[in-house]
């Protein structure tokens, strides 16, 4: 690999410092769960987690492991498995600062960072308690048309964007398919860390049929191979959600000991599945 280094999961997550502003994608867009486990194992602390624009198991696990100080999100849910246990517990005991948002606000704030501009206007939100509790969001008058109040949001520029993708080439180009959230995250973030199912031969950008669905290497800081790296979440058309593993998480996540035990079992599960 000429452009960027192919590295181990441990080395990949070592470049996420304590206190980092870390952006992660929603459950269906390629969640780097194997890297998340490695991050928890290295004992990361005080993360400011930005969910793009929602999260589930990943955010809940990081919160349960005591790794998160602030979470900015439009929702955290385990879907049909129920409400996120560690997220809810952390809010109850006030160990987590929540910045409630709405999905398009998180996208728009990342788009501002993508453009290198300090803020961005967005419709809606006026009169909501979401806006009322966000001291960092403001309402201005449309400078071009009088009598048109509009919300402005500061740019979100993550220190790190972290996600899982299908494959990368040896130049460091990453195939993302239709999952454009991760493209936006990478454009906005200072550094981007990616785990992939596999490395492919040839240059992904050279293929006109695939080139438009590629994150170019210029945005990518490091790549690690993680087979079944989104497990136990589903990943694209590659593998379905492991319902049994998530059900087990829901029962174990009620205590810190349970979280630790789940993480230990998780290692075994990944090895068995690989």
């Amino acid at each position: 690999m000429s452009a960027i280094s192919l590295t181990s999961l441990e080395t990949l997550v070592a470049s996420i410092p304590d206190g980092a502003l870390l952006a992660v994608p929603k459950d269906t867009s390629g969640v780097a769960m194997a890297a998340t486990r490695a991050l928890v194992r290295r004992g990361v602390r005080n993360l400011h987690l930005v969910c793009v624009p929602t999260s589930g198991l990943q955010a809940d696990l990081l919160i349960g492991a005591g790794a998160v100080a602030v979470v900015e999100t439009s929702a955290i849910t385990l879907g049909e498995f129920g409400t996120a246990p560690c997220f809810n517990a952390a809010l109850r005991n006030r160990s987590l600062h929540i910045l409630d948002a709405t999905c398009p606000a998180i996208y728009a704030a990342l788009q501002a960072a993508e453009k290198g501009i300090p803020f961005i206007p967005l419709r809606g939100m006026i009169g909501t308690d979401v806006l009322r509790h966000r001291a960092d969001w403001k309402v201005i008058d449309n400078p071009f048309v009088a009598g048109d109040p509009i919300v402005v949001l500061p740019a979100i520029r993550p220190d790190v964007a972290l996600f899982h993708a299908r494959c990368a080439d040896r130049e460091g180009n990453v195939f993302i398919g239709k999952e454009r959230e991760v493209l936006l995250m990478a454009h906005a973030a200072k550094t981007t860390l990616v785990t992939v199912e596999e490395i492919v031969e040839g240059n992904l950008l050279a293929d006109p049929a695939r080139g438009g669905a590629v994150l170019p290497a210029i945005y990518v800081s490091a790549i690690a191979i993680a087979k079944r790296g989104a497990w136990p979440l589903a990943f694209a058309d590659q593998y379905p959600m492991d319902d049994a593993a998530i059900t087990r998480y829901m029962t174990m996540a009620r205590s810190a000991e349970g979280i630790a035990q789940f993480l230990a079992e998780w290692d075994g599960g990944v090895q068995a599945a690989a």
Partner: peptide, 26 residues
């Protein structure tokens, strides 16, 4: 879609507002 009680001290917390704070307007 956020929770009961005096935010952010929500005795019952739901997932969050998702896109509602925007889509309801538009």
């Amino acid at each position: 879609l956020v929770g009961t009680g005096d935010y952010p001290d929500t005795p019952v917390r739901w997932p969050g507002s998702f896109g509602s704070a925007y889509l309801y307007f538009l």
